[in-house]
Design a protein around this nucleic acid. Structure first.
Lengths: 197, 197
DNA sequence: GGAAGAAATTAGGCTCGACCTACGAAAAGG
DNA sequence: CCTTTTCGTAGGTCGAGCCTAATTTCTTCC
């Protein structure tokens, strides 16, 4: 075959994965995380129970299927930043950019999603784990750039911490009933207070 | 009753709790976390399976029974710091103090413990969750002191991040086979590089 | 275009962590 | 001493995670 592209098998796999995650997400939102069983997800998605387990090592991963995007966000932004700019500037830039775009690519900000996560200890833990994975990814980039590992990791913790605080601030405001634009405005103001003075 | 003190009932409870945690820890170290079952722990500790579950909501908690000490460490140090000193100074002071004392009160630094935790994804996750709980506790103190919540949380993330980085740096060195004094020396040096310049 | 090979999916079953309920044992307080 | 409250136990349910063997689905090479 001349045009490489992903074959039928790979495309089907991705479709199955996405489909299962979508079905699971809807059930979690409707009935809650612990009230939904893997068997039920499998039935609704019309696959075997084992297929669900096969694609998603943990039940929690069904809701956080797009976690890799967030995990890589800061590390990529810093690794690909303009020459001469600091990691901090890169993080600030990527966050402000996301605010301008109203987070088009990330689904982790809706009210229903927020409620579902907050209602389940297991999902809250999974989300926080994701945040520390993001920090690890960023740390790997900074350590590679630096000649002193510990301070590089501290800087990664600080920058990822800023992102994390803003992330949960958004969550808090969404849950408080603020509309989308109000949340964005509040976050822009928070950025100012963090980075301006 | 004149002498208040904890009654017999409360003392027995604490003894049972400590005993179960000790038995579990030994089994985890000997055979690994996932290879050890709750039933086995109950048998060795000579209590009912349900009693173990009763004291420890999650299997992971059996190893991290003393997590509250670490969780409260920074928050307490900052809340009780000398008047006029900064939160950062309080965190630096409590960490340096622990180094001087060779961590007598905290058991989270031994080689066997380190190996046991590293070998189990569930325990690694539990440990990182603990670290974020520590950050939350510190954030609560800083937010109460501040008039602007978001920057206060960012500062909590930074300070807790420093502690976390040093904690895992200790882990890494212990696993690399360094002896206790070498680890302490390395951490003191790391503190200098973080806080001096 | 068809057969051989590889990979994904399935059915069914198993272990074990987490939880529930009702009951019995032990301590605290009158 | 007797009542009340709390703690621990026995036995059982539910579901997540995992294994195996068999079957279906795609790829590849003839």
């Amino acid at each position: 075959m001349t045009t490489a592209g992903p074959g039928l098998r790979e495309r089907k796999k991705q479709a199955t994965r996405t489909h299962i995650a979508a079905v699971a997400t809807r059930l979690f939102v409707e009935q809650g995380f612990e009230a939904t069983t893997i068997a039920q997800i499998a039935e609704r998605a019309e696959v075997a129970k084992m297929t669900v387990t096969n694609y998603f090592a943990l039940k929690e991963d069904l809701l956080f299927d797009r976690a890799p995007e967030i995990i890589a966000l800061l590390a990529d932004a810093v690794a690909e930043r303009a020459a001469g700019s600091t990691p901090e500037q890169a993080v600030a830039a990527v966050y402000r950019r996301r605010l301008e775009e109203r987070w088009p690519a990330l689904a982790f900000v809706g009210l229903e999603f927020a409620r579902t996560v907050e209602a389940s200890p297991a999902l809250r833990t999974r989300e926080r784990t994701m945040m520390l994975e993001q920090e690890d990814a960023l740390a790997a980039v900074l350590v590679a750039e630096s000649d002193d590992e510990v301070p590089a990791r501290v800087e990664a913790a600080r920058l990822a911490g800023i992102f994390r605080v803003l992330y949960f601030e958004a969550r808090r405001r969404v849950l408080a009933g603020e509309d989308s634009e109000a949340v964005v405005t509040a976050l822009e103001s928070a950025c100012e207070r963090i980075w301006s003075p």
